[in-house]
Each structure stands twice: as C-alpha cells, then as structure tokens.
Design a protein around this nucleic acid. Structure first.
Lengths: 199, 199
DNA sequence: ACGCTCAAACGAAACGGCGCGTTTTCAAGC
DNA sequence: GCTTGAAAACGCGCCGTTTCGTTTGAGCGT
C-alpha cells in the first residue's frame, strides 16, 4: 500500500500519503467520463471523492497535474510485433483507437491536450510525455530497420511523429471510429514512402 | 457601408448592425493575443471593445461562435502552385506555419481547437471548416494527378488529412518553428509513398 | 425637404450562480 | 496535546441574463 516516489505528486511535506489519493484519482476519472471536460472541476472531483478541496490542492498543484496523473494511471496500449512494419503500424493505431474509444483514456487525453493550450505546466508535461511516447513508437520503426525492411537512413522520430499526428487528429476531431480502410491507406502511404529507396 | 448577409451573425431581428460588431471582433482578437486563451473571456472582450456583454450575446450565441468568426476574418494562407507536388506541399506547410507564427491566427486556431474539445457547437463548426479546408488542400493533390505526377488512384482526402494532421500537431505542441528539414522529411516520406506505384 | 415618432440596438450596471484557489475552523487519532 | 486532514467559509472573477436609460436611424406626416 505504501507506494511512493510518484513524481507528479507534491513531495514537499509529503510525510505520508494515505490511499485517499487513489480515491481522488478515481473520482477525477469518473467525473471526466460522466460530465466531460466541461464539467471537470476540482470542486466536482472533491464532491465525488468525498474529499476536501484543500486535500486535492495539497497534492496536485493544478488541474493539469491531476489530469496528467489520471492519464498516466491508465493501462498502456500494447504495441504489436508481427514482423512486418505495416502490420505493426496499422495494428498499433487500431489498438490505440480502440483503447481511446472503449476506455476513459480518450476523454482524459483529449482534455489534457485542451488544457495544455492554456496551461503552461500542462503543456510541458504533455511535451515530456509525448517525447517518451515517440521514442516508444519509434522502436517499431527501429525493429523494421534491424530486419532490413526499411533503409537505416529513415528518421524514425519523424515517422513516429507522423503516426502520432494522425492519431491526435482523429482523437481531437472525434473520428476514432474511422474506417479501418482509411487507417490502412494512410499507413500504407507513409509505409511505401519510407520503404522506397531514397532518391 | 451597409454590408449584410453575414451567415455567422444572428439574423433574427437584425434590422441594423453598426460596425460595432467589427470593433468587438477586433477586441476579441486583441484580447486573445495579449492575454492568451486562458484570459479570453466575454467580459474581457466587452471591456476591451467598450461594449456591453448583452451586445455580444445578441450576435454570437457562445464564445465558440465568436472565436470562429474571429478566425474566419483572418486572411487565408495562399497555396503555391510550382508544378511539383513536393514543392507545393512543403511550401504550403511553410506558409501555413509562418502565418500561424507571425499573425494571431495561430493563437486563434489553437483556442478554437481547445474550445471544440468541450463545446459541441465549436466542434461542429470546426469540423465543417476542416472539411472545406481539406478539399482545398486536396486540390494540390488533384493538380498533381492531372499532371500525371502521381497515380489517379491516390486518395487525395487521406493525403490532405495526413498533411493537416502534421500541421495541427505542430501547432498544438508549440513546434511551429520546427526545422524546415523536418517538414521536408515528413513531406518527402508521404510524397514518395503516394508517388510509388501501388503494390 | 424637414422634423417628429417609434422601435431596435446600444452601454452600463446589477443579478444569482458557479468554480477558482486560499484561509480558517473543527473533529478526530497517534 | 499536537499533528492531520475534512469541512466550511472566504473573496474573486466570469458566466449568462435582466433591467435601466440613452442613442440612432428609418418611416411617415406635414
């Protein structure tokens, strides 16, 4: 129970953290799902968690910090490894879209991106997170390089960024139920682009 | 002077609309630039425009509607036509990034996207706008098809979407000053992907 | 052509409501 | 008895709306 070393949590006078923090995080997620980002207020979370506002502010400096930690609590999307890059990428996107659609992750991440547009701290946290995620996705590309499927000269960061951009756009414009055909086409275009020998 | 037929404006009893509406739109833009999206409130706009809040609410049903009209007032980015698809796409993105960076358009559009994450009307308006923009960008692709530069089987909507996704991501993550090299690489990957003969 | 009238739109102020982030109070528990 | 943390209360700002008195321009009668 007594887990610690949570970087998002204020560690100033954090002499001890009961599991009420977990209740707050769960309440935050529930509020976000039920009332949407518009209804996501610290007061609503406090009400839902039967906690006091000062308790929340003691551990999270801002709404953004709370949002980020809620998102980081979510289970990660698993990255397929089929041995073929195109299948990996399509599978990854399909998994991601399904995960965003079927759990609260989509709502949470959308809210986080929106919050980052007006909150400096959220923007920094999101940038940090994206960096980690990009290198993670980049491993799919790197594996393909190792197999000799694509040239080693391919900039995997740029490719990962293209894929992530595509995912973000569909999340932000409520198009997560896009045809698989469209995903397939988009990935296929990028795929053939990087697989072709450089001119 | 007596211009009319402005679709975004409430036309119920709109017997006459002085140019105070222009003052409000200008004030909205100024507030957004100076105070950012976080400080963008109807009250702030009203103060800045020396207008009453009811006047604003009379013509724009929501903050989102006001935002959208501010954005649509902006000058459009011109789309190059160099005769080579890759140059067109890179040029378009470079123009767009510069425009977003150097005018208030970037702030306005970022705010609009953020607002669309919690406001249904804003989301609908944005989707509508994006649809128009996508077909506009799609014309670059169509021209390349007509020249025989890429196969006619290429789905220009998907390609336009890929390009737009890339632009959105860089706008939303404050990376509009990305190296031209990165833009070039990304476009080049997509470019070669669609130029290659379908397998 | 002139001036009157009337309705529409105006700016300003105030309303109740809500969420913010903070401070203060108060009932526990080691 | 001293720390802890939930609960209540605070002042603030913005929301969206209502009310007030004023300005303005179009229509109409003289």
């Amino acid at each position: 129970m007594a887990e610690d070393a949570d970087p998002a949590r204020r560690s100033i006078g954090a002499r001890r953290n009961p599991d009420s923090a977990d209740a707050i995080l769960e309440a935050a997620e529930a509020v976000l799902v039920e009332a949407g980002y518009a209804g996501f207020s610290i007061e609503a979370v406090a009400r839902r968690a039967r906690a006091g506002k000062p308790t929340i502010y003691r551990w999270w400096p801002s709404k953004a910090a709370l949002l980020l930690e809620v998102y980081q609590r979510q289970k990660r999307v698993d990255v397929p490894d089929t041995g073929r890059l195109e299948e990996d990428l399509v599978g990854f996107l399909k998994n991601l879209f399904a995960h965003w659609r079927e759990t609260s992750s989509g709502s949470v991440f959308r809210s986080l991106i929106a919050e980052a547009q007006s909150d400096e701290a959220a923007a920094a946290a999101l940038a940090d997170y994206s960096l980690g995620r990009r290198s993670h996705t980049g491993q799919i590309i790197e594996r393909a390089k190792a197999r000799g499927e694509i040239p080693a000269s391919v900039d995997s960061a740029v490719v990962a960024d293209l894929i992530a951009s595509f995912a973000w756009r569909h999340l932000l414009t409520n198009r997560l139920d896009e045809d698989e055909a469209t995903i397939g086409k988009a990935v296929n275009y990028v795929m053939r682009g990087i697989a072709a020998p450089a001119p």
